[in-house]
Structures are given as C-alpha cells and as structure tokens.
Design a protein around this nucleic acid. Structure first.
Lengths: 201, 201
DNA sequence: CCCTAAGTACACAGATCTGTGAATGCAAGG
DNA sequence: CCTTGCATTCACAGATCTGTGTACTTAGGG
C-alpha cells in the first residue's frame, strides 16, 4: 500500500535535513538493507524518535533519499539545458556532458540501480522514483532526438540510455576510468550516423 | 579476511544443489540482505544445519551463487565462440548475440550489478566474482577487437561494455523491450565505424 | 560389519532489526 | 501567557538475523 505520506523535501527541519543527509551517504555506500535506523539516528546526532516523527518509516526515508538524489541529478541537467545553446544535437547529449561530474559521486555505482536491486516489493514507495528516473532520461532522449530531426527516435533513444547507464557500471565495477568520455563520444557518433543515414540534414 | 574456503560447484551434494538453486532464485528476486538463511533452508526442504555444514556461512553461499551464475553466462558465450565462424567482427559481438537470451533471466536486472550494490565490504568473497565478471567481458572486447584489426581498442571496448551493461538496465528498469537488439545494432555500428575510420581494412 | 558422508531434529545464544509509548525540555510566535 | 513544533530520553515490544551444539538416522562402500 502506498499509504506512505511522502515527505516534502523543501520544508525539512534541521534534524530531518541531517537525517536525510546521513541516510543518503550510508544507504549509498553500504546498501539500504545493510543500514539500520539506529545507525542513521546515531550518526545524525538525533534520536530514533525524531527520525520516525519526521519520516514515518524507514521505507519513507528510503523514498526521500531517492527523491532528493533524483532531484539533484535532474537539476544538473536542467541547468545545462537552460543555459546551453540551441543546437539540437548538443541538447540531446546534455546528460553525457553532466556524466563525468556525476560519476564523481558514483564510485559505488548508480544509486537507483542499486536500490532497484534491493527493493523487490513492487509497492515500495521508492520503486516509482527509480523507474521514473530512468524513464525520464529515456524520454529526454526521445524528445530531443525528435527535435533534432530523427524520424524514428525509439531505438536510438534506447541506445543512448544504455550507453549512459552502462557507463556508470563500466566505471564503478570494471574500473573503466574514461567511461564517461567514451560513452559521450559513442553517443555523438550514433546520433550523427542516424542523421546522415536518414538523408541530407 | 577471505578465510572462506570456496565451495566446489562441481561436487555438490543433492542437498547443497537444492540450497544453491533456491538461494539463487531468492537472492536474485528479492536481494541478498532481504533473504535469510532460515528461508533458504526451509524453501530447499533442508535444515539450517545442513546449509551451514555445506557452505560454512551465508557469505560463502552468496559467493557460490555469484560464481554459478557467472559460470553459466560465460559458458553461453564460450559455446558460441567455439561453434561460431571465424569472422573477427562477429566474434567481438558474440556477447550481444547471447544478450536477448540472457535478458530472459534479467527481469530484476543484472545479478552482479545488484550484488555489487549490496556488498559494500571490500573483503566479501563475492566482490571478486562480480568485478571479474565485468572485467572479463571488457577483456573479451579488447582482445577480439585487436584481432579484428582495431589498433587502439580501449575506448571502443569500454563503449561496448557500456552498451552491454546498460541494455540490461534499460530493459529491466526502463522497460525498453528491444534493448538487446538496439544495443547489438549500436555495437555493430561502432565497430564498423572504427574500422572504416582507421583506414581501409 | 563397521565406517563415513549426508542429512534430520531441535533448542538456543546473542545480536540486531523496525517501530512505539509516554513524559519532558525548550524556543518562537500569536 | 500559552500553544505549537521540534527534539530528547529511555524503556520496551516483537520479530528476525546469523550461527552453533548435541544427538540421532540412514544409506553405501570397503
């Protein structure tokens, strides 16, 4: 049951802020099930009572963790989309511009992918956040590719999504240092190839 | 400490076989920390004592789970490499031939990536298996690309690894049905592009 | 015939987990 | 002044976790 009343990330009390920050670090570095609420409370310098008063449950805290991370990532992309030029191909590739920066926080892999592996219950309030993060990126590619003049963007959008997600895996697990740049270059090649293969422009 | 004496997957007692099978299903579907040894034992129709007599610890069972999965996946690739023709580019792309089949078992994502997110302890006996699975694939691409006549295979190998891993993510989380085929096509394009861009043959 | 390997039965230790109840302190704002 | 929001303190319930100790059964092979 999604009866969990979602927390408003914009109006967090100081204590709640600290709880969320600590939980984010611990969940990401150690895994969600591996971190207990006692640890989170202690590490935040807060009592367990406060944690439950602010967030209601561990599951809701997990959802808030994912939401805040999703929000930060999207804002990085939104910023570049706003300030960036109007060149349609560049707009498609904005997530790959952000990727090197994002990878700095991804030594332990992608938080959403990791959480997906842990949250098997389809009703868990965090599941939606995870799926939406990925579908949002897929949508971004679809939309911007269309604007760039790609008639059938679907397969290419999936390819770009795969490159993007896989780069995080290649970097964090296989230790491929240049994964972000490699993925960026590949993405550009594929887009240009599609444009050429489709007629002139 | 890696004091865990690894289990020999080839000489498992009937009970141990059932334990490993059940554990594999449960670990993959629900996550490693979410499944207790009591559940595994009960579901295997075996006592907890037997589980510990055969595997020694949960961590060792986890490692065995990853090893057996790694082994099955590699054998799928090895088979096609053996029987397949000698066309060097086809050999590079064999993992992408296997991918659609492999994705049938990947509704909950990649077991290695998921396990990586859960096993934060660098000393965990499963960590090596995970890292080796990914580096082995990267190595495969590097080697076969070299045989295909690519002078500097490194960036391309990373791109192919990213495509491969990302396709699992795109399929399992974003619900991209044609992810395997899309990744395969992209991989082929990138390889051919590299061959062309490098001079004639 | 007896030894060994495989497994059962079952209790239990000790830790850790999520979550709650009830009373209290304290500061800011109406 | 008094309410309201935030947080503390602390005890505790009840479940679940990994792992062990001990004694018994059963089947196959030398």
């Amino acid at each position: 049951m999604p009866a969990t009343p979602t927390v408003d990330l914009d109006s967090l009390t100081p204590g709640a802020r600290r709880i969320l920050d600590t939980a984010s670090t611990l969940f990401y570095e150690q895994g969600i099930h591996a971190v207990g609420v006692d640890t989170i409370a202690a590490e935040s310098g807060v009592t367990k009572r406060t944690l439950y008063d602010r967030f209601g449950s561990k599951d809701a805290l997990v959802a808030a963790y994912l939401q805040s991370r999703d929000r930060r990532w999207r804002s990085m992309i939104a910023t570049r989309l706003d300030e960036g030029g109007a060149d349609p191909v560049s707009r498609v590739l904005v997530p790959f511009d952000v990727l090197p920066l994002w990878l700095d926080e991804c030594a332990r892999g992608c938080s959403f992918i990791n959480a997906f592996g842990e949250l098997h219950d389809a009703d868990h309030p965090g599941r939606d956040v995870i799926v939406e993060e990925k579908t949002w990126l897929l949508d971004h590619f679809r939309t911007t590719l269309t604007h760039a003049g790609i008639a059938e963007p679907e397969p290419l959008a999936v390819q770009l999504l795969s490159l993007h997600e896989g780069a995080i895996v290649a970097y964090s697990i296989a230790g491929a240092a240049g994964a972000a740049e490699a993925a960026h270059a590949a993405a550009r090649s594929l887009v240009e190839l599609a444009l050429v293969g489709q007629g002139t422009r």
